[in-house]
Simulated scan of single mutants.
Amino acid sequence: MSPSFLETTWTDPVTGTKGYVVLDTLVRGLASGGLRLRKGCTLEEVRGLAQGMTRKEGLVYDPADNYLPLGGGKGGIDIDPGDPQAVDVLRRFLAAVLPVVKEQWNTGEDFGLRQETLDKVAAELGLASTVEAVFATLPDAPAARDRLAKAFAVDVDGVSLGDLVGGYGVAQAGIAYVERLGLIPSETTAVVQGFGSIGGAAARYLAKAGVRVIAVADRDGLIRNDAALDVEALLAARDGLGVIDRSALRPTDSTAPTEAWLDVPCDLVVPAAMSYVITAEDAARVGARVVVEGANMPTLADAEAALLTRGIPVLPDFLANVMTNAWWWWVVFGDIAPTAESSFAKIDTVMRRLVDTVATDAETRGVTLRSSALALAGRNSAAVQARVGITG
């Protein structure tokens, strides 16, 4: 792996909290990737996330789109998002790395950080948005700003469109893959770990497709109903951190400790919260036929190897959860209208193409889904570099 273009470690002068920015690659001087708040976040973690963003950007490249992929970047702060000092630490962090945000790093919400909080802090620092570096390169920047604002203003059944597209893509990835296994949604069961933007939306759209979502886990525990959970009721009962009010549960819903999500027999399991949640020791407990990585880096490499020996494929994160990032840029570059209909139609088309391309190649060459997706991302990234005149 080649070295990153930029790695920055920041120490908060007030609390001593560490924060990190890694720009893995630049294309046209730009990188894209979110900012997370997580207690225990490390430079190594952010480096891996930034590498994943490079892959995501390359994976969705289509020469027919106006959107020409960017490089990959990521940020992280080692703090619990529920810490009373979290927003103040975030403000000082962004102030310290502001030149990078203005010129190169286009960022947005990630684990532990809502976009509205990020936008508010950015505005306090004089930024009109957290993607100003891209807007500075666009001849139609005012129209692009307007499209993005309209897209984020769209409400779909009580949830912002921007909070749905990533999880919608995860759901479509899982459905597309199980259909290749000969299953139809009404015959499929799913367990979702995490009930924030990605996990909540994944659960919603799996259920809308007819999949029985039989368990979801948040940080307060597991909620299970083998006949199917009422996902919409659970969404209405969650707070801003994705924690479900247990008073909204039905008498037929049961609860268990959070870690029990790995043990529930199902067709699809969707880790959609934190990184590193499936370890080699956990692999033997996984009761699913397929792992669909809704979170970034949830499965450790030795765990994935152990799952594969049991015949359990892993649909990798940089494919399954690519749509949050892609959606932003499709809107900004004008490839889709700022509507739910246009957004979901584009995601449907692209995700099915990606899953089918990767799965067919993996089957033909006898390699893992991850290896196939990595190869596709590499080929596409090389095509982008050639298009913009980068060699080597």
Results as ranks from 00 to 15, higher is better:
Ser2Cys: 07
Glu57Asn: 10
Met351Gln: 09
Leu26Ile: 02
Asp119Lys: 13
Val178Trp: 01
Pro142Cys: 09
Gly19Glu: 00
Val322Tyr: 01
Arg55Ala: 04
Ile312Gly: 02
Ala141Glu: 03
Leu229Lys: 06
Val87Ile: 14
Pro313Met: 13
Val211Pro: 00
Asp119Ser: 11
Leu376Gly: 06
Leu90Glu: 03
Arg370Val: 10
Thr299Cys: 13
Pro298Met: 14
Ala237Leu: 06
Thr255Ala: 04
Leu35Gly: 00
Phe135Lys: 07
Ser381Arg: 15
Leu229Pro: 02
Arg212Phe: 08
Leu127Asn: 10
Trp327Met: 05
Lys102Cys: 15
Arg147Glu: 04
Leu241Asn: 11
Pro265Glu: 09
Asp62Val: 15
Pro313Gln: 12
Leu315Phe: 04
Val358Met: 03
Ile198Tyr: 03
Met53His: 03
Gly48Ile: 13
Pro271Asp: 12
Val355Trp: 06
Ala326Gly: 06
Val264Trp: 07
Phe152His: 09
Asp226His: 08
Ala215Met: 07
Ile390Gln: 15
Ala305Lys: 10
Val121Ile: 08
Ala31Ile: 01
Ala209Met: 12
Leu315Ala: 02
Gly240Val: 11
Asp245Phe: 05
Lys120Gln: 14
Gly196Phe: 06
Asp83Leu: 14
Leu206Asn: 01
Gly287Cys: 13
Ala273Arg: 10
Val286Arg: 08
Ala153Glu: 05
Lys18Asp: 00
Ala272Val: 15
Gly311Tyr: 03
Asp146Lys: 15
Gly75Cys: 03
Val350Tyr: 05
Arg285Asp: 03
Arg370Lys: 12
Leu37Phe: 01
Arg310Asn: 01
Trp105Thr: 10
Thr15Val: 01
Leu68Gly: 06
Ser32Leu: 06
Ser129Lys: 10
Arg92Leu: 11
Asp230Pro: 02
Pro3Ala: 04
Asp80Cys: 12
Val134Gln: 09
Phe344Ile: 11
Met297Thr: 12
Asp302Asn: 14
Asp263Ile: 13
Asn321Tyr: 07
Glu7Leu: 01
Glu304Arg: 13
Gln172Cys: 05
Pro142His: 06
Ala149Cys: 10
Arg91Thr: 11
Val277Cys: 07
Phe152Arg: 13
Arg246Asp: 02
Glu103Ser: 15
Pro257Arg: 11
Ser381Thr: 15
Ala141Lys: 08
Arg36Asp: 00
Leu164Met: 11
Leu43Arg: 14
Ala284Pro: 09
Val270Met: 09
Asn321His: 07
Leu59Tyr: 02
Gln104Leu: 15
Thr324Pro: 02
Ala209Gln: 10
Asp62Trp: 14
Asp62Ile: 13
Ala272Asp: 07
Arg114Met: 11
Glu44Asn: 12
Asp88Gln: 13
Trp261Pro: 04
Leu68Pro: 05
Met1Ala: 02
Asp267Tyr: 07
Thr189Met: 13
Trp10Thr: 01
Arg219Pro: 00
Asp245Leu: 04
Ala128Pro: 14
